[in-house]
Design a protein around this nucleic acid. Sequence first.
DNA 1: CTGATGTGGTGCGTTTTTCGCACCGCTCCG
DNA 2: CGGAGCGGTGCGAAAAACGCACCACATCAG
Lengths: 299, 299
Amino acid sequence: MRHQTTLRAIDAVARAGSIRKAAEQLAVTHTALNRRILAFEAELGAPVFERLPRGVRLNPAGELVIHHFRAQVADMERVRSQIADLAGERRGHVAIACSQALLPFFLPRHIAAYRAGHPAVTFSVELRDRDVAEQALVAHEADIALVFEPVRLAEVQVLLAAPQPVMAVMAADHPLAAGRGPVRLRECLRWPVAAPTIPYGVRHLLDAALARSSVRLRPAVVSSSFEFLRCYALAEQVVTFQIPIGLPPERGELVARAIDARDLAPGLLYLCQLRGRTLPVAAAKFTDQLARALSEAES
Amino acid sequence: MRHQTTLRAIDAVARAGSIRKAAEQLAVTHTALNRRILAFEAELGAPVFERLPRGVRLNPAGELVIHHFRAQVADMERVRSQIADLAGERRGHVAIACSQALLPFFLPRHIAAYRAGHPAVTFSVELRDRDVAEQALVAHEADIALVFEPVRLAEVQVLLAAPQPVMAVMAADHPLAAGRGPVRLRECLRWPVAAPTIPYGVRHLLDAALARSSVRLRPAVVSSSFEFLRCYALAEQVVTFQIPIGLPPERGELVARAIDARDLAPGLLYLCQLRGRTLPVAAAKFTDQLARALSEAES
DNA sequence: CTGATGTGGTGCGTTTTTCGCACCGCTCCG
DNA sequence: CGGAGCGGTGCGAAAAACGCACCACATCAG
């Protein structure tokens, strides 16, 4: 959109931290960019950047302005998307920030299903966990976020919360895999454990559950990658912990058993958007599809 | 703001219904304006106006675009206002849509009080009753609305609802003025009545109260002006009906007695804004002041 | 029917704005 | 102290916007 070139320019400068660097990215000279900014500041009646010896940085007024710009660009995208929808063909882009567990099966399946019906819609999926996902929503870098047990922010609106019980995961030939139904947590801990690192929701729930017990979590292996943990359970006879949505639909070499609800309350998977924002058509419809799938899986 | 000239131009054309008329208002030739629109439509990939023999009219896509523009301009105004507030001086503009009852005493007093503290803030007060006030909010022609018993719209957010009992109003020498405390409705109707016309909230409440009774409202005088009704009560010995907020604080020639709550439930005066909108600083602070005054008056 | 009026759209020369080059003053850092 | 990196400025060139004259078309009064 031509009428918001100045907006994008200022955004680029704010991100790059220097007019010259931003000018290079935008393929213009620093002169032109500098003058645009000066003109805008003159019009606004107040500076937007504070000039430092090594570049520029947004001042408080600039923070307000940049936030307005991001919201404006995102809203224009929504308008374009709705207009395309008006013309019959649904097009647009859906930017998703999500936790690791959504990456292997859930999102690929649903995005593929959606794109089968609307090939003109494109997607971007970014791994952004918990608070970082919510920051992405606020900065308009993501339209929707799917996060497990997030730190709750005031600016985020929860569209759906799906219970996800923590599962004990192990190889099919693991002794624990022989049992049926829920398994007690203390029983799992009798074998070596492969656990996620501290900042993750699953680990958080485990630590919280064990805090009131005498048993301690002494992981043999720790990783920030759930994919690694799944694969490691195939390589050594360990027990690891994951939520169902990140596990293969059909169990093959891997077996998952729910942890007894007495030991560990189910965590919640949140589907979120920025509070007060109207999503573009494509994002809104895709969100509907996800919400339907999540609430059906629940029942 | 220079970067939204095209926006304002399209808005002007939409309002004027013709490119040439809008061009005249904007003090440019129709050629320039026409080309701006064509360029914008080309960029958008879809027309915004449908061309009629006698001018142009927004098509559905245009409705979306114009709504986006209005929201954007209003939000920019909020940003400017917040930046001014950052610099210490509060400036900006507050556009109010309100019912008649607010015009004579309530709004003048509070606007004057606010401007005493912040002389750089300007105000506009438009008489917009009920549904028209709400339309003004949606069209961003008003920041806040003060309406009595409005038709409720989904896009409007109620900030406060202040009970306003309907009062019987008459001259000080009217027989009914001799009594003390609440007066029964049927007692009022024993004298000639000067009533508001149908579309107004007070009249609506009266009609609703009398619908279940055998007594009928037979007004001797009907008017759409509450100011006229007040003045008429001084000229003839009639009873008229108004809400307290529209009556002089100190009673002189005019006496008001509340209608007994058994006959007539108090109406509600609503303080509203557009749902999901963040008001400019000045409007937000002024709204706070109004809300405080209204809830104090209540207690 | 017919001319007058009003509409949106277009070709073209002119004016205004924007851009890019060269250069300045400044701060930081080796 | 000198080089590198930064934001800011004067000035001529390029580009965009503008205004004029004009067209095709629809409407409406006479």
